[in-house]
Design a protein around this nucleic acid. Sequence first.
DNA 1: ATACAATATGACTATAAGGTCATATGACTT
DNA 2: AAGTCATATGACCTTATAGTCATATTGTAT
Lengths: 205, 205
Amino acid sequence: MPKQTFFNLPKEKRERIVMASIDEFAQYYYHKASISRIVKNAGIAKGSFYQYFEDKKDLFKFIVEKIGQRKMEYLGPEMSNIDKSDFFQVVRSMYISGIKFALENPRLQDIGNNFLKDNDMNLKEEILGETLPKSNEIFVALINKGIEKGELDSSIDVKLTANIITNLSIIVSDYFFNDAKGKDYVEIMPLVDKMLYILKNGIKG
Amino acid sequence: MPKQTFFNLPKEKRERIVMASIDEFAQYYYHKASISRIVKNAGIAKGSFYQYFEDKKDLFKFIVEKIGQRKMEYLGPEMSNIDKSDFFQVVRSMYISGIKFALENPRLQDIGNNFLKDNDMNLKEEILGETLPKSNEIFVALINKGIEKGELDSSIDVKLTANIITNLSIIVSDYFFNDAKGKDYVEIMPLVDKMLYILKNGIKG
DNA sequence: ATACAATATGACTATAAGGTCATATGACTT
DNA sequence: AAGTCATATGACCTTATAGTCATATTGTAT
């Protein structure tokens, strides 16, 4: 957590620091990000930075939390529909919201995705704490309900399936941004639907 | 490419350097790996290192190529069966061989996986060159043949499917090592089969 | 005006990185 | 024994990092 001093700062200054940090982390990710560059771009003194944050990790944690909150603004509404819609509708909305978030917040998406891919388990544990498992648990619950309702094949491995669905969401947005670049928002839906078709029916002829 | 000097070295010394490098990259990955630590652990002088390699990237590229070769020793035999077996048999063998490689070469697996996840596209491009797209192309060809033979649903998006299959192979071994840790070799097959079941039939009830 | 606390500052420390280079060593040739 | 060449060496260079700290500035309350 940033120190109280940081929160006492005028909003404009706080935002300058946050912006400079996001720029830095988006370009250099955590390990290669430089506090010296951040303070230079934010227009504050090095010493001031350490009046606001404990250290680099403290700042990064703050930024990652901000990203999480932002993403929740996209996913939250879809998750409240969980009980009304059927399984594939919910997954579909979540994938689309995920890509929409990525489209509208490319730098945040970049930081978040890279962080999730990072192999520094200590860092991940310290920063995500108990947040990480939660995403999977949501899908586990969703899948179990889908099975009860008969929407899903009861013979699937629930945990593995939850894992696949989580990862497919990353795959579909990576695919959208890398392999199918240049496309715009309207082209998301067909891609997501193609992926969901495979998830639903498999690829067997 | 390492300099000629490196290849002139006695085998024992060369292997000491390779081992120390693998240890270093497995623990610190590319960006945080330290040449100073490598030369210390290999028992050679810093100056000597630069008689053998152009720079850090040169060494890493050499190690990544070695890993690729090693992995091909596992996957190669399966790929020669491509024409005989049916689609899902081939994919199954490749997944299993992949996990077997990971089990028997955990440090190499670690370096390779982390490198593939890395977002430093420059580094990836410089090191993989044209190797990266090839993996996907193999699956594209395989899928097209599967469709021709009627083994696969002809309405699937081939490129997307190839992408999914490539990524599922990473997912299944990550899952095996992280979420299902402690399990031993015999427990791979059911896991792979569960995943293939989903790929084949989907999860719809 | 004075006193006090919060904030701002940048030179500084300590550490480590990748990479260089003049010199030393040792083996093989003549 | 002299000369040549590949190899070995570690002190050294530059550059960068995260983090510290004594001092200066500012705003506020009295």
